[in-house]
């Protein structure tokens, strides 16, 4: 069962970032799609792979012409390596134990990082000859090389196999100019003391806040400290689930959040009775045109309460007379 006090929090741009790579890396990536590895010549003639747009010593722009690129490898020697004994499926390039290695490709003056599939750590050493294992469905990314493999003495590297994902006859396949970059960061975030206090309250249908001993100001929800003084809000205070709308907007854009109701809807700042800070909430239960500053509202609780902000679905009008402007004017 999920722990209400540890959030599984992920950062991920849906669909991945659409990255433009510029002409220098674009040429390298287009060549990968063709099963070739290109280096760019630096100002001093060094062959740099993967290519860089700017010389790593002088910062001059490099790789502006076709003749600035040379094919290197495909075989090379391991310069250094580390062993990954427990690969993370879907995150690491291989699903079996492997080495991350710095490989100096034949003809290159720099090393390139890639995975080496060699079974055990005994299968790799500084100086080991390796060659790429190419994918057949190449798209113009560094992962078009699935990994490198160890070569036997005297073995010659094999050419990249023909692509299986060639475009149709009618399709013009241009150079690679961009890439989709997908990644995801998964966090497990534990709730602190004040957040636990607040979440536990929500599970019981209560809004809990706190105040610092030196202040009379009450902060609803999971404020662990008084933002004016930094003092812990160590004194627990129960706050009403009623209050007034101070200000708001009417949202006419669909799909801003999975939690968004159908448009149009009202997103408001709410000053709860007994609290001194503003809360965000949706106002429902009346026409959007009828929402106004000072309108009295009450939290609409979910049928099943849980220690989560989802316990409050939205706020709805109570029908009471409006709060006087004096009551909330200093919170606008």
């Amino acid at each position: 069962m999920a722990n209400s006090f540890i959030a599984e929090h992920s950062l991920e741009y849906p669909g991945g970032y659409q990255r433009s790579v510029g002409p220098v890396l674009g040429r390298f990536m287009t060549a990968l799609r063709e099963g070739k590895i290109l280096a760019v010549k630096g100002v001093d003639g060094r062959k740099i792979v993967p290519p860089q747009e700017y010389d790593p010593v002088t910062s001059d722009a490099i790789g502006s012409k076709a003749e600035d690129f040379v094919e290197v490898g495909p075989a090379g020697r391991v310069v250094s390596w580390s062993w990954v004994n427990e690969p993370r499926i879907g995150k690491h390039p291989l699903s079996v134990p492997f080495a991350f290695a710095l490989i100096r490709l034949d003809g290159a003056d720099t090393t390139m990082l890639h995975a080496v599939d060699c079974g055990t750590p005994e299968g790799i050493a500084t100086g080991t000859r390796v060659a790429p294992r190419w994918r057949t469905d190449r798209v113009g990314k560094i992962t078009d090389i699935e990994c490198f493999t160890v070569m036997a003495d005297g073995e010659q590297p094999v050419l990249a196999p023909a692509r299986t994902n060639l475009p149709g006859d009618d399709t013009e396949e241009g150079d690679v100019t961009g890439m989709n970059s997908q990644f995801r960061l998964d966090y497990r975030v534990p709730a602190g003391a004040s957040t636990r206090r607040y979440l536990n309250g929500l599970g019981e249908g209560k809004i809990i806040g706190g105040r610092a001993p030196s202040s009379t100001e009450v902060y609803a929800a999971s404020r662990g400290t008084d933002p004016k003084t930094g003092e812990p809000t160590s004194i627990e205070v129960e706050i009403a689930d009623t209050g007034c709308v101070t200000t708001f907007c009417i949202v006419n854009i669909p799909g801003l959040s999975e939690l968004a109701p159908e448009i149009p809807y009202v997103s408001a700042q709410i000053l709860l009775d007994g609290a001194d800070n503003m809360m965000f909430g949706l106002i429902r239960g009346c026409a959007v045109e009828d929402v106004h500053m000072g309108m009295r509202v009450k939290a609409k609780w979910a049928d099943e309460l849980a220690p989560s902000h989802n316990s409050i679905l939205y706020y709805e009008p109570t029908g009471e007379p409006d709060a006087p402007y004096e009551h909330y004017k200093d919170n606008l």
Binding site: V189, T247, C249, V251, I253, S257, S267, F280, G281, H309
Partner: peptide
Amino acid sequence: PFSAPLVAGAGGFFAPL
């Protein structure tokens, strides 16, 4: 984590102001 999302986007923060 643990916070009720604004459900209104960036403009939804500034429009009430």
